[in-house]
Design a protein around this nucleic acid. Structure first.
Lengths: 151, 151
DNA sequence: AATGAAAAATCTTATGC
DNA sequence: GCATAAGATTTTTCATT
């Protein structure tokens, strides 16, 4: 990976639908070598895929909550808990942490009412957990812009 | 937005580089009406953009930390703090919360050493804050797959 | 109001240099 | 890495439902 590859990654994180030609121009190449580099980056797993970014409000997911969950410290409980998370579509991101809480979720739902229902029906009922703590997001302060790519 | 539009959103979140023709086939249209719908969704701001998804390890960002920060409850402190966050590229996401902590960051750096440097140089020195608490991410439990789109 | 078919413009991709 | 050319795709236009 050289400077040109890093520029390609930067550009494709800003606009994942750039044509190879536009991309080539921005990184100072013609399209054939540019395309070869992009395909290589895809094959190598550096570029894992491409995604449309959807406005959460537009699909009824404008209400976000961070949920800290304390999970029992044993392998079975952790595995069952993490498998259960995969089945809840409202859970957008989930991280297992060192220390306490054992897990943090980001959840997106329509509104407080929807969250109350989710909380009572699917979060408090998760097996292997000892505590659930919800924090409502007031505002997204920094929009995800992809990862910075250092020179 | 009808059922077809929702299917388009689902498909483009899975693969943001689908050709209009493939997309059209998947949602049961021919390419012209399909393209018009996609452009409309873009114009309406439902589709906010397209992004390549980069492997964090591949760009030296495989070490992630969640940082809870308590910010002074006054407008100036909050605004200065949030502006400062925009200038730290290692901060990938940031949320302002109701209650405590006032703010949660997700940070991606190369390793623990890089995080130590960031913490001492740029986090503890932020103005208007009263507490910084770092939690290292052991594992991403649920990969971001975009937002669920309900029928 | 939205779709489908077909043609023109543009883009992707393979090949030879 | 570049230039070219063949093959796909995008995008426009116009007729259709």
């Amino acid at each position: 990976m050289d400077q040109i590859d890093r520029n390609i990654l930067r550009e494709l994180q800003k606009d994942g639908r750039l044509t190879i030609q536009d991309l080539a121009q921005r990184v100072g190449l013609t399209s054939s070598p540019c395309m070869r580099r992009v395909r290589q980056l895809e094959q190598d797993g550096v570029i894992q895929g491409y995604r449309a970014v959807i406005n959460p409000e537009a699909v009824g997911r404008g209400f976000e909550v961070l949920v800290s969950i304390e999970v029992k410290r044993d392998r079975e409980a952790v595995e069952a808990f993490e498998a259960a998370l995969q089945e809840i579509p409202d859970v957008i991101e989930a991280y297992r942490l060192f220390g306490s809480p054992g897990c943090l979720l980001r959840i997106a739902v329509a509104d407080l009412t929807a969250y109350e229902r989710l909380w009572i029906e699917r979060l408090t009922t998760l097996s292997g957990i000892t505590e659930v703590n919800s924090q409502i997001i007031m505002k997204r302060v920094k929009e995800p812009q992809g990862l910075p790519v250092d020179d």
